[in-house]
Design a protein around this nucleic acid. Structure first.
Lengths: 149, 149
DNA sequence: TGAAATAAAATTGTGCACAACTTAAATGCG
DNA sequence: CGCATTTAAGTTGTGCACAATTTTATTTCA
């Protein structure tokens, strides 16, 4: 590739990632709309569903670390999910700086409605399971590299 | 992978793409800030720099097709770039529905300041050129699949 | 102990991305 | 021709993402 081509749109990895993320979102949106969720809200619910009870709590801070999002993004998003009665937000009495997030019963129940989404989205990719795992591993490497430079 | 794991965050391709796109953006932002550009504005400039003159024009429509963005995103973004005197917006006299975008002299000149960005960002990925091309090809396949389902 | 430093959320402001809609212009076709 | 249809931009409203700042609580350590 000549130096003249470095700035061509078609040669940018970042543009492919950007386009794919938008395209992924467009495939998820109509499916998630049936659950009343946006894509980002779905990611939050995925974390909460991993401890699928109304008793387990996770702080906004820990949620932010898992999802790589700050309180500026999470605070209003969590308020919207609370308004939908999918989760509760409660100050930690041991440390009043922290806010603990718990699923409500409705939030727990929503998991069942989401159970078919991963398979449905996988079929949209047109990939085999092996290809998926290979790509996941490559992207993990790239994430690791870019997090340390 | 068991069915129980389908909804785990760590198993989602979409989350990797989402995280990578955000991470990519964070690497670009401080670099682009020196040019007074956001990441999306940079993508628009990449398209315009491919015909690096003040005479070539591209319609908002064509720009939207290249970048996969609609007028709701592009109209305000292009106004901001016009305010920065990097481009001009002019109704097409042959078809008054269309608005034609042209680089200004300053817009053309900015390309030189951006010339080192692709190499700089490539180094952040930690990949070899072969790895980059392989990944680009895989992502192109994925984009093609997801655009037809 | 108590002032300085650190930490967690929330708030404010900017700029996307996109759905839904409006406006104005061009096209098509009976 | 004339009217319905289509097309291109722009507008409005919602929800992120994130920088910068504020508020309140906790920790540190002289």
């Amino acid at each position: 590739m000549s130096n003249n081509d470095n700035l061509k749109l078609e040669n940018q990895l970042c543009f492919r990632l950007y386009s794919l993320t938008k395209l992924m979102n467009r495939h998820y949106s109509p499916v998630l709309k049936k659950l009343g969720l946006t894509y980002s809200q779905y990611l939050v619910m995925l974390v909460l569903w991993e401890n699928n009870t109304t008793t387990a709590a996770i702080s906004v801070k820990a949620l932010g670390e898992k999802l790589d999002l700050d309180s500026g993004t999470l605070s209003p998003l969590l308020k919207r999910l609370e308004k939908q009665a999918l989760l509760s937000r409660l100050r930690n009495s041991k440390d009043e700086r922290s806010v603990e997030i718990k699923l409500t019963t409705a939030g727990c129940q929503l998991k069942a409605l989401a159970s078919g989404i991963p398979a449905q989205m996988f079929s949209v990719t047109g990939m085999s399971l092996v290809e998926l795992h290979t790509l996941n591993a490559q992207l993990d490497n790239l994430l690791a590299s870019m997090n340390t430079r």
